[in-house]
């Protein structure tokens, strides 16, 4: 079976990648097996380490993730949120705008 993906710029062989991944995994496991044997599960040794801070009581929730990204782009998100108003009139309006833009692009580009 043909596993090689030939693209316009080169080729890609997934099976070679899998073989390389297996070798790297084997090396990683070898290194791990040579680590400290006295690790005790269920004690504070297995708790997450948050840069010296006290461990938090619960999980880190989804709403906490990428907070900085969303906060940093708050202005852009406000714009996008305004465009996603949830009002069905706006949905229909966007279709009209699309049709007009498309018609202009096609007529200008297609008849040139």
């Amino acid at each position: 079976m043909n596993h090689v993906l030939v693209t316009n710029a080169g080729y890609w062989s997934p099976l070679v990648w899998v073989a390389a991944f297996a070798i790297v995994t084997a090396i990683a496991l070898l290194i791990r097996s040579r680590g400290e044997k006295g690790c005790r599960h269920g004690t504070e040794q297995s708790l997450p380490f948050f840069s010296g801070n006290e461990p938090t009581a619960g999980n880190i929730h989804a709403s906490n993730l990428y907070w900085g990204f969303v906060h940093g782009l708050a202005r852009h998100y406000r714009l996008l949120a305004r465009a996603h108003s949830g009002v069905v009139n706006d949905y229909a309006f966007s279709l009209v705008v699309l049709a007009v833009v498309l018609m202009a692009a096609l007529i200008v580009g297609g008849m040139a």
């Binding site: 996603h84 949830g86 706006d90 949905y91 966007s94 279709l95 705008v97 699309l98 049709a99 498309l102 018609m103 692009a105 096609l106 007529i107 297609g110 008849m111």
Partner: peptide
Amino acid sequence: ATFVDLAALSLLVSALLLKSGSVPVHM
């Protein structure tokens, strides 16, 4: 292509883009 061809194509494509959920008719 005639004017009518292109106008018709733009209407067909707009409607199908809406069904596919492409921007700007993705809401």
